[in-house]
């Protein structure tokens, strides 16, 4: 039973004139099988939370703890976190010239699973996962994210989610920039992984639109670097009606 526990997390970035605190005491527990939506206005620190959990070197943790099944996540390197089961679907996936998608996926799966997947079953596994996400087979031979459209990049992220089967999936604005069709395809991918019941999902989004496809168990409003309010799915409906105005008044970090 995988559990991600975030306690009083404080995170800073280097800025002109010294470090600037972005996360100001985040408390959150995500259990296997649960889906938590984190919603908030721009600049509230949602993406910082995502990247801090994955271990991006730009962010400095200045206080608090993060554990996965009791293991200290903050003490792990980026690749160790991934192998421990933390997966971050990025808002802006990076182009990696010279590395083909198929080589990348296989290298990654080998690292995460601890052994190279058997070639025959692997080829089938990738092919089927790509079909489900409506990714053209020719993408396997293309360089990672190179020349991909916004929607293609997001589908490629969810392809990795499906293949790597993490314990904790952090989806950082996976819905941004997607048209309705692409949003449906991507959401279906996320739901397939969720339905297996093995993953705890942290769904970070600015909009409520994706919550029509991916139903959260818990909704948290993020403002000024911490969780300002938590509730059930009904909280999303309230945000849909009223927006973030109530939360940004005098409280936003920028």
């Amino acid at each position: 039973m995988a559990t991600l526990e975030i306690n009083d997390l404080h995170v800073s970035v280097d800025a002109e004139g010294g470090p600037r605190e972005i996360l100001r005491g985040v408390d959150l527990t995500v259990k296997q099988g649960e889906t938590h939506a984190i919603m908030g206005p721009n600049g509230s620190g949602k993406s910082t939370l995502a990247y801090s959990l994955a271990g991006h070197p730009k962010y400095t943790v200045t206080g608090g703890t993060v554990t996965l099944d009791g293991e200290d996540v903050l003490a792990m390197s980026v690749d160790e976190r991934a192998r421990a089961g933390v997966f971050l679907a990025m808002q802006y996936p990076v182009e990696v010239p010279g590395v083909s998608v198929s080589n990348f996926l296989r290298t990654s799966a080998t690292a995460i699973r601890g052994e190279a997947p058997k070639l025959r079953t692997w080829v089938k596994e990738v092919k089927e996962a790509m079909e489900r996400l409506h990714i053209d087979p020719s993408f396997a031979e293309r360089n990672v994210n190179e020349g991909f459209s916004g929607g293609e990049k997001k589908r490629h992220e969810i392809l990795q989610l499906e293949l790597l089967k993490p314990a904790i999936a952090i989806l950082d604005e996976t819905d941004s920039g997607l048209d309705v069709d692409a949003l449906r395809v991507v959401s279906e991918g996320v739901n397939r992984v969720r339905e297996a019941g093995q993953v705890g999902t942290l769904l970070i989004t600015h909009y409520t639109r994706i919550l029509r496809y991916i139903k959260p168990d818990h909704v948290h409003v993020f403002a000024a670097g911490r969780i300002a309010e938590s509730g059930g799915p009904e909280l999303a409906d309230k945000l849909e009606e009223e927006g973030y105005e109530e939360y940004v008044k005098g409280g936003a970090s920028e």
């Binding site: 994955a54 271990g55 991006h56 070197p57 390197s77 980026v78 690749d79 976190r81 991934a82 192998r83 997966f87 971050l88 990025m90 996936p93 990076v94 182009e95 990696v96 010239p97 010279g98 590395v99 083909s100 080589n103 990348f104 290298t107 990654s108 690292a111 995460i112 360089n143 990672v144 990795q160 790597l164």
Partner: peptide, 28 residues
């Protein structure tokens, strides 16, 4: 770039292996 390294590491690939992957791909 550091961002490329982060992306590959965030998929479980250790730093030296990530660098190898990129260089091998570059020359392949």
């Amino acid at each position: 770039e550091d961002e490329q390294l982060f992306y590959l590491m965030a998929r479980g690939i250790p730093a030296d292996e990530a660098r190898r992957l990129v260089v091998r791909g570059f020359f392949a």
